[in-house]
Each structure stands twice: as C-alpha cells, then as structure tokens.
Design a protein around this nucleic acid. Structure first.
Length: 453
DNA sequence: CATCTGGCCAATATTGCTGG
DNA sequence: CCAGCAATATTGGCCAGATG
C-alpha cells in the first residue's frame, strides 16, 4: 500500500510472501534507492544500458544522487527523463485505469513458428490478417494503420535460450507499419493481407529465420469506449448478446437482466434479484497519503471525511448486493436441481457433452488476501476458495473490511470488491446466457488443465 | 495422494514515446 | 503526423511447497 503506483509496487514486493506492507513517502525512499534502475516502470534493457553507459549508475539511489533533471532529460529525452527523475524520488503520477478503451486490434504467433519456403510465410501472414479482420468485425471497429511485427532468429544463438524445441529463442524483433488514407474494416481481409505482405517483402528476411509474426491494426475510428481491452469470458458473453460491459455504470444488459421481457435468458431472475453493478461515479474516491503535505493541509477535513465514508458506503453497498445475488443464485440452484431438464443450458450441455468438470473462476483483487476462487458446476456455484461457499467468500470480504478499516485508503479494498462484483456479474451473465456455450468456447474440448479453469 | 495455494514466466495484446 | 521500437499489462500454463 502506498500513495503512488510505484510505492505500492515496492511495498507489494516487500510484502511477499503472504503479507501486507504500507509505505509512506519517507520510508519508501530508502527502499526505492535499493532498487535496480531496470526495476522502474518504463525502464527496459535499452534504457538501463544507456544510463549505465552515461552515468555508471545501476541502482536508483546511485542515479538519484549523481544526476540532475537536465542531465537526465538530455540523456533520455524530455518526457522519459522527467518521468524517471520523479520516479527516483517516489513521485509517480500515472493514473490508474482498470479498463482503458481499445486502441488497436491484433493477433500474433511467436511460438512453434517454422517455415521452409517464403510461400508458407506469406500464407501464414494472410491467415493472421484474416484472424485480425475477424476480430475487427467482432468488435465493430475500423482502422487506418496496419502493423507487422517479425521475430527473426539471432543466428548462432545457443539453444539454452530457447524453451523446448518450438520456442522462438533469442530473436530480434522488427516492426514495420504503414498508414492509409482510408480505413480497413473487418471485411477488408484482402486489402490488409496485401499491405502486410508488402511490409513483409520489404524486410527481405529469409523465411527460415522467422520465429513469429504479429499483425496489428491501429488508428481505430470507433468509439474507444465501445470495445474494452482484455477480452475473456465477458467478451464472449458480450459478443453473443450484450454490447458494452463497464463496471462504472450499470450496463444495459444488467438492466435487461431484471426484466424478463428484455432478456432471452432461459432463467428469469427471481423476484427481488439485483444485478451486481455499482456506479463508482456516485462516490468520491481518492488515495490519501498519511504524510502532511501542504496540499493535505489545504484540503478541508470535512471533505476527507466524506471521501472515506463514501467509500465505506460503497463497500457496504457492494456487500449488500452480493448477498442479495447469492440468495437469488441459491434460489435458482434449488429450482434448477428440481427440474434440470427444463433448462436450455442443460439441453446445450447434453448436446456438447456438458461441463464435465467444474469451471473455476479466479478473482484476484488488489490484496492477495482477497483472492477468491469461485467454482461452478454447470450453472451452480458449488464452492468458492475450494470448499468454501460463496457466502464464506463474502464473509471473508467483510472480515477484510474490518481488518483494514482505518489503515487502508479506501480505493484498494473497494477495488477488490468491485473486481469480485465484476467477476460475479460477468459469470452470472454468462451462466444466464448460455454459459455452457460461452465457456466451452473459451477452452474448446476442455483440454489443458483438467478442471477447465 | 489429492488438492490447495502462491508464484514464476512465456505468450499474447496492446500502449506510448522519440526522432524525422 | 508517421514509422520504428521499447515497454507495459494481462493471461494461462506450470510447478512446488503446504495441507488435509
């Protein structure tokens, strides 16, 4: 726990395993000084090497003592130099956005890729373009820029650096892109393929040296909020029926969930069931540091009070909703157990071989302690945290709330519960909306992990 | 011995900065 | 504004120690 993302990250590292550490700015500095420069966000191997070449500094403490802001901006550029100078002092102003809007669509394969002939590489690229177009069509976006990424094997690199016989091993990664006046749509597979293949030909790399390809379309001309990054179960559920999933507002489908007329769900919710959704905008949430800076002195204490109590209300609100949802889920489970063949889900399950094994949904919150594992068998919640029931998970959330009260700034715990709600909401949507199909689509044939997680 | 739990890491999917 | 490229974020697979 810290006042910035960087300090929270340092604290998290100190807290492992199985603990929790709260660092304020003054105590954080000593820990930041010990970090390797490479450990700072935004510093990769090239930047770290450059800093070593110019300043002969390997740790944050060394660099902080040796270098002025102008020296750093001269070495790394204005933006990176300024940012790194601040990070060295624990100042990290990056905002946290749980689900930023999508800005590109792509697909890449860099595992198990081997070609003998150029034609094979070209055919593979066209397939990749086809996949990208399918995703663009699914998300309903168009884009003007096509990008190609190529993994090229470093000649003579030792096999030790390769995982198994099909890993990409040590590679140079090359990027090329081009921007057009008009945009590609999901139907423009041929045009995208033509542009990407021309970028590939410009590189003139022998097909035998290729270890992977990536194709990306960016400069999207769409409502960036309409398609969220990181598609998982919710994307599949959403693609089937719903258009937007956004925890910050009550989604349309959640409203529909309450109205049997508006939903094709085979399982109309029991009377009184509430969708798990919370309007975060209704609460003023912010992380307060515990030190007394001028900014804090200037801030009215009444406002601080409101902030904290708003968050506590939000947490309570979420818990109430979760408990309502649990009751509704239990009622539905009982109803289903008494007439299993009446449900569309059961029919689909029979057709596809059913969900033979439980489906586990992992929910990771901001706090390790708040990790929950929900287990579904078919459409029934059969456990959480292994044998723990869903209500126990909620009890655990309650005990966490008590445990951290007074110590924890409001946001992290609230975020944890929001994420739990998010997952429940997503899963609940999927369950009510042909879950078997959606979940089997996630992992066709249920291969891999025997529990189908 | 099976399951739980936490952690690591490669693969995958973006995002954002700099220099021209 | 664009191309090139470095870096981050997220996911899933796997593993090993702990636990019952």
């Amino acid at each position: 726990i810290g006042e910035s993302r960087l300090i929270a990250r340092v604290a998290t590292a100190l807290a492992k395993p199985d603990g929790c550490v709260h660092l304020d700015r003054s105590t954080a500095q000593a820990h930041i000084d010990k970090l390797q420069i490479r450990d700072l966000p935004g510093v990769g191997p090239r930047t770290a090497a450059r800093i070593w070449d110019v300043f002969r500094a390997a740790t944050c403490g060394e660099l902080r003592e040796k270098v002025t802001r102008p020296q750093l901006t001269q070495c790394l550029g204005r933006k990176n130099g300024d940012r790194l100078f601040d990070l060295l002092r624990g100042v990290d102003t990056r905002p946290w956005e749980p689900r930023p809007g999508r800005k590109s669509v792509g697909a890449q394969v860099s595992w198990g890729v081997r070609f003998d002939e150029d034609d094979q590489a070209t055919a593979f690229l066209r397939q990749l373009c086809s996949e990208v177009c399918a995703r663009m069509a699914e998300y309903g976006v168009r884009g003007r820029s096509a990008g190609l990424k190529v993994w090229r094997a470093v000649q003579g690199a030792p096999d030790l650096l390769r995982k198994g016989s099909v890993g990409h091993g040590l590679c140079d990664i090359l990027n090329r892109s081009l921007t057009r006046g008009t945009s590609f749509s999901g139907q423009d597979e041929h045009e995208l393929g033509r542009d990407v293949v021309s970028l590939w030909k410009q590189l003139a790399i022998p097909a035998k040296q290729v270890r992977g390809f990536g194709v990306h379309v960016s400069k999207l001309d769409c409502d960036a909020t309409a398609s969220r990054a990181r598609p998982t179960v919710c994307r599949i559920a959403a693609a089937r029926k719903r258009s937007v999933f956004n925890i910050q507002t009550v989604p349309e489908w959640a409203k529909g969930f309450m109205d049997p007329e508006a939903s094709s769900s085979p399982h109309p919710p029991s009377p009184g069931a509430q969708p798990i959704a919370v309007d975060l905008d209704a609460y003023e949430l912010q992380i307060d540091s515990s030190d007394s800076t001028a900014a804090r002195r200037d801030r009215p204490s009444a406002k601080k009070q409101r902030t904290r109590s708003g968050a506590e209300q939000a947490i309570q609100h979420l818990i109430d909703i979760l408990e309502d949802e649990l009751r509704a889920a239990e009622a539905l489970a009982v109803q289903e157990a008494s007439a299993p063949n009446s449900s569309l889900l059961s029919e689909r399950g029979a057709l596809t071989g059913g969900l033979a094994s439980p489906v586990r949904i992992m929910v990771e919150g901001c706090l390790e302690d708040a990790m929950h594992q929900l287990v579904f068998q078919g459409q029934h919640v059969v456990g959480a945290h292994g044998a723990m029931a869903l209500d126990s998970a909620i009890s655990k959330a309650r005990s966490l709330q008590d445990r951290w009260k007074g110590l924890l700034p409001p946001t992290p715990l609230h975020a944890t519960l929001s994420q739990l709600a998010f997952a429940l909401q997503t899963v609940w949507c999927a369950i009510c909306d042909n879950a078997a199909e959606a979940l089997l689509a996630v992992k066709p044939g249920g291969g891999g992990d025997s529990s189908g997680s």
